[in-house]
Design a protein around this nucleic acid. Structure first.
Lengths: 333, 333
DNA sequence: CTGTTAGCGCGTTCAC
DNA sequence: GTGAACGCGCTAACAG
């Protein structure tokens, strides 16, 4: 690959002149400029961002660490993050934390070695993440949805508790009284907060939720399927279910269909996340929609702001989620 | 951030000694080694991959360019690519081509500037990609699923034509005769090949497919929904449909459900891609499953092989897709 | 066993 | 309007 030096020689000028025509950083005679540009084109010269980074101490690269990038929710988030970053001239290094604390540690180390300018962190919040980042290096970090304790980072929240609350309110307003909750693993903060909002709404409505009506399962369609199967085996099944994730809700819808339970006639279901598949489920799923795109672009904006201007005070911001009513919920018969 | 030089000074040794204890690249007395290691830990020194890259002309970073990373199929592929790459010590820069030739050109340029070691290219094959890469720079490239004409790159195919053929065979063996095909845009090679396999199987079975039974739509659930709606409005609707993508099939299933058409009793449906959601559709979708994980790891293996050993001859390899029979297909009543 | 030194490709001061 | 030279952080060849 051609270097600036070679271009300079071939054009009969000095290296610094070449540099200056490339970066438009000082006046160069039209004559010389044209010649240099010609040679650059001819030699297929492409400046080295590596060398540039070494000099400027900036890589224009940001790390994105998520639990699992193939989960539709994270995949959609990533897509918007990538989009926003690209607009501002930054590239994304994609990292899956899924695979345990060990992989995560290794990844963080690699990212630091690569001298990323910043990090977008979507923490699952599982316990094994607790200690890792506390001793983090001096890189700007923006956290999405979940604050790791002891980590100095900007924070962007999506009102998980309010989301759970809104979902429950919707069901209650439809006349439902016996409402179950299908949740992800109890040790995930996301789960806890969503369930918390749900319970608050129930309590406010004077409804009690017996423990058997809250079932925890794996954070997947399979988990949702299992949870619904269990729930619907009850001689007196609930008339509505709040599911803390669309992935699980989709599995649940499948289980209900197989069991011959008609949604929403016999059972109302509301999910959470508004993944693309939710709108084309059978029936189309009523769900709580976090503002994924807004969160992504805000995250990137904040991060780059911090990268550029150093020590602005830490900020945390909460964006509202909205309830998207589709066809999986109906008034109690 | 601490530098090697600072560590050396603090430890009272030379820079090269520090370098050698870090890289285990020559014998260092236990005494000195321990001391240096201590200082490194104390100063939180982290070697700079940027400087290293400049020296070695290797970034251990590979670009992954896909049409749209939030599409579940690509998201799953990416997840495995990331996984395989990480195992071998490489990071992934994620790029969405979606957004036109302009963004694509810009991305390619950026990747070249960043001096990626290699590129995994999942081309949509749309026409606007044709010209871009022909003048590509000397970076190893592995293409997935689709060969761009005139591009020197290894190739990993997934038997699209055979997949379409297998899907059609399955339907035919179930006794169906009037089989429609819902396809993505006609200008995408992926679509063309899958439809090609379908038509071959039909022809082999002595069946003809009138043009109205082949409907092209956008490559999304919405597109599938629209296509099914149109198809089912026919006074004599087909008894089975081959859909060239699961995303579209899911939309189709939704349309069928809304229209009161029972799957598979009245209509058999087979999809393509085996995305995660397919297994929990209503009913669970019979589909053609490309070996995503195998393709991903093979792609990375091939790419890194080429990165390491330079000019091995170009290879192209086809991996077989398999038909996953679930509950959306049944014998003709 | 350890230190000195010359680049890697580029941006930037300083001098002309 | 242009060029020479230094340094970013690191590796490797060469001395000692």
């Amino acid at each position: 690959m051609a270097t600036m030096k070679q271009v300079a020689e071939r054009a009969g000028v000095s290296i610094s002149t070449v540099s200056h025509v490339i970066n438009n950083t000082r006046v160069v005679s039209d004559d010389v400029r044209r010649r240099v540009l010609g040679i650059i084109d001819e030699m297929r010269y492409i400046p080295s961002a590596v060398a540039r980074s070494l000099k400027n101490d900036k890589t224009h690269t940001i790390g994105v660490l998520v639990p699992n990038s193939s989960n539709p929710y994270f995949a959609e988030l990533i897509r918007w993050i990538e989009d926003a970053a690209f607009e501002l001239g930054y590239n994304i290094i994609l990292c899956n934390a899924h695979g345990g604390a060990q992989k995560q540690t290794a990844y963080l180390r690699l990212l630091m070695e690569k001298r990323i300018d910043g990090l977008v962190l979507v923490a699952s919040g599982a316990d094994d993440e607790q200690d890792l980042l506390v001793r983090h290096e001096a890189v700007p970090i923006v956290q999405l949805e979940r604050a790791l304790p002891g980590l100095d980072a900007d924070l962007i929240l999506a009102g998980q508790e309010e989301g759970g609350h809104a979902a429950a309110r919707h069901l209650i307003e439809l006349g439902h009284r016996d409402i179950a909750c299908v949740a992800g693993p109890a040790d995930l903060p996301r789960t806890r907060e969503r369930v918390g909002g749900f319970l608050r709404a129930m309590t406010e409505a004077g409804l009690t939720v017996p423990p058997v009506r809250i079932v925890h399962e794996e954070f997947t369609s399979a988990g949702g399927h299992a949870a619904f199967t269990r729930l619907l085996a009850d001689p007196h099944p609930p008339t509505a279910v709040f599911v803390t994730s669309d992935l699980m809700a989709l599995g649940g819808l499948c289980a209900a269909g197989v069991a011959g339970v008609r949604v929403p006639a016999q059972l109302s279901v509301v999910g959470y996340d508004d993944i693309a598949g939710a709108g084309y489920a059978l029936p189309p799923l009523t769900t709580v929609a976090p503002p994924k795109r807004a969160m992504a672009s805000l995250a990137i904006a904040r991060l780059i702001e911090r990268i550029r201007s150093g020590c602005v005070p830490l900020r945390s911001m909460a964006l509202p989620s909205t309830l998207v009513v589709r066809a999986s919920t109906a008034p109690l018969q």
